[in-house]
């Protein structure tokens, strides 16, 4: 079951809102379970078992491990554990959005919403570039492992500066080169055409999109009332 791009975006915003409003772990695990379910329903490769496992570990650390550990450990760890756990609903939604949406679908929806190329092109390129950036990073890391870059430099600050330079420079060089090549390919395929682009991959929102949004809204309202209900 794949939903519309806009549904995923709304879902992400609402789950972030819920995460900041809600303080009840039972509600949160409920939200997380439904999001994981949504991932499972989306088809192969969207549900990431390791991500789910990490979430479980974080919840268990916070509610089982930290209370029995000495106060000092709680002081050091609690902020980290809570912040990361709190970010999980958003993270899972971003995974949903990223894995389920093709760049063309995203551009199509945005274009149909009347957003101009000035926004859709950079966003599309950015999303398309995420795997490439990761790949570039891995290549550079491999190259660095094969060569002891900092050998002979004793000053620790210089060592850091040297490492920093050697990671960043090839990354910038290759990204800027790729951006030039991408631009040449894009321009020679008429990306600057002022006509309104047509969208082969546009699908209007369907029943399941509206149902998902309504359910998510209901949960958000519930979280809001639970937090501020008494004051109103």
């Amino acid at each position: 079951m794949k939903l519309d791009v806009r549904t995923y975006i709304i879902l992400t915003v609402l789950s972030a809102t819920c995460a900041s409003l809600n303080t009840d772990i039972r509600v949160e695990t409920g939200i997380m379970l439904s999001l994981f379910l949504l991932q499972l329903l989306s088809g192969r490769g969207v549900f990431m078992p390791k991500l789910a496992l990490t979430y479980v570990i974080f919840v268990l650390t916070e509610y089982v491990l930290l209370p029995v550990l000495p106060e000092a450990a709680d002081m050091i760890l609690s902020m980290f554990v809570v912040n990361v756990r709190n970010f999980f609903p958003v993270l899972v939604c971003i995974v949903l959005l990223y894995k389920n949406t093709r760049v063309s679908e995203m551009s199509a929806s945005l274009t149909q919403m009347g957003i101009s190329r000035k926004v859709t092109v950079p966003v599309a390129v950015a999303i398309r570039y995420i795997p490439t950036l990761k790949e570039e990073w891995e290549h550079i890391r491999d190259a660095m492992r094969m060569r002891s870059i900092t050998a002979g430099i004793t000053n620790p600050f210089k060592r850091i500066a040297c490492k920093f330079e050697c990671y960043l420079v090839p990354l910038f060089v290759s990204s800027l080169k790729s951006s030039d090549e991408l631009a040449a390919a894009a321009v020679s395929r008429g990306i600057e055409n002022p006509a309104k682009p047509s969208c082969r991959n546009y699908r209007p929102m369907g029943m399941r999109d509206y149902v998902t949004i309504v359910l998510a809204l209901a949960v958000t309202v519930m979280c809001f009332l639970q937090r501020y209900g008494r004051q109103i």
Binding site: V103, S104, A124, R128, R189, G190, N193, P197, S198, R200
Partner: peptide, 18 residues
């Protein structure tokens, strides 16, 4: 390539033209 799927990539120049 700009698109993450093959079909959209092939028709990209046509989409730009409307």
């Amino acid at each position: 390539f700009f698109n993450t799927d093959v079909e959209s990539e092939i028709v990209y120049s046509l989409e730009n033209r409307g």
